[in-house]
Design a protein around this nucleic acid. Structure first.
Lengths: 244, 244
DNA sequence: GCCGATTTGTCCGTATGTATC
DNA sequence: CGATACATACGGACAAATCGG
């Protein structure tokens, strides 16, 4: 349990804000007072508060006090944030879900694949394609490429359950950084074939390159969503000069 | 120039990485060596590096060295990141652009507006709607509500140029936090009326609530994009326990 | 409009723990 | 196992912004 002091403070404050103990537009105690409450030095409190800022809970200005800007919001459809698997997201939103593996084969990266995915030409890859059903409807089409050398032993059973479980728990891989891009494009005939698109003629696409702790890109992922089952939330801060 | 030490270090390292002085998959000097290079203590170097991590430039593991995972990428169409105005984004991408103001009137928030925008019922608001043209094509439809008390004096001329210039430079308002949501929806008849949608029947929508330094929400913004002129980039980090 | 108290922003130096190699 | 390197925390200092009288 590597619960550090600053993250205990962060979670405690976050919780108090979410439960309205500190209400919208009120002030938090000063950092000096918080050091007394939590029994630590100011830099530790300060660090916890910076996380609250990044997550959109509070606002701070030099010389002024810490203002709460969090308000409870309605449940959302399918929020994408951080690195979250389909399974995690579906579970959090309380949906029943199912996965169909429609392809799993070994390929070698040619120029087209390399260009699109960031792998080098000649890399051995698993080409995995899966259809995600939520409450019985086929809504998401996932196309993934995994480096064979990093995901060795991947099979259909694993792909049906959770590839990430396999990588993290079986192969002990540590996933670190993920670079993602979101775009929207016309549905292809492959999309139309697998998904229930109703009247939609385009899809929201989240594509990403994932790196492990060795700095090796081991995955390219492309998640093609029917527009109405997709939502992305974010908090941005104007970092004039001060960055984090 | 409130350039702090840690952000000078951040920019210097960022620059050295972007110019390939530190190349993809190589290591940065250790924090101890960096303290010698920049003449400061380790905590300051550490802070700069944490920003590089958040921005997707490098990767770190306890006990291991700092690995560069940045690779130069192709120019992208319309990247949304941080708090950036249409004008800034268009300029950065080298497009010619034009704005048509199709509505600017004062309204009072009713229940429907309040629910959708986060303002309170009875708040006096400017209702501004603008069509954004890029390279001559009408591609983005912007709907904004501003608190009259915060944006007093807003007129069509200002709306045509830049409302943010006006708020920040004329009214000296300080914009702090912005909470955004991205979704995709069917185009409405209003969208079809103003935009050149070609065959697209849905739009990517970025909606957001913007707070000033007093913690007051002074704006609700809704930016409706034709799918092919939209792109969002992001870097995510698996924060196992360590947060920031 | 000025001044002093308060509060946050940054930085230093040090110490201890823990993961990697 | 030891050397190296990162992670967290402490305590103190000064600067800069805000706010109230």
């Amino acid at each position: 349990m590597p619960e550090t002091k600053f993250d205990k403070i962060y979670y405690d404050l976050k919780n108090k804000i979410e439960t309205q103990e500190y209400t919208f537009n009120s002030y938090l105690p000063s950092e000096r007072d918080l050091t007394k409450i939590y029994g630590c030095v100011r830099s530790t409190v300060h660090r916890a508060i910076k996380i609250l800022i990044e997550r959109g809970y509070v606002q701070m200005r030099q010389g002024s006090r810490i203002r709460v800007i969090y308000e409870p919001v309605e449940r959302n459809v399918f929020k994408i944030g951080g690195i979250e698997s389909f399974k995690e997201a579906a579970a959090r939103n309380g949906f029943t879900y199912d996965t169909k593996v429609v392809r799993l084969e070994e390929v070698e990266a040619d120029e087209e694949i390399s260009e699109r995915t960031g792998f080098k030409i000649g890399d051995k890859l698993y080409d995995v394609r899966r259809v995600r059903c939520i409450d019985g409807k086929a809504l998401i089409f996932d196309k993934n490429y995994f480096l064979v050398s990093a995901a060795r032993g991947l099979n259909e059973e694993i792909a049906k359950k959770s590839i990430y479980d396999y990588l993290e728990n079986e192969l002990k891989m540590k996933i670190m950084t993920s670079k993602r891009k979101m775009t929207a494009e016309f549905a292809t005939s492959e999309d139309k074939n697998y998904l229930e698109l109703d009247d939609y003629n385009c899809l929201v696409i989240i594509s990403g390159r994932v790196f492990n702790s060795e700095g090796i890109q081991f995955e390219y992922t492309e998640s093609r969503h029917r527009p109405d089952y997709f939502c992305f939330e974010d908090t941005a801060i104007r970092h004039d000069k001060k960055l984090l």
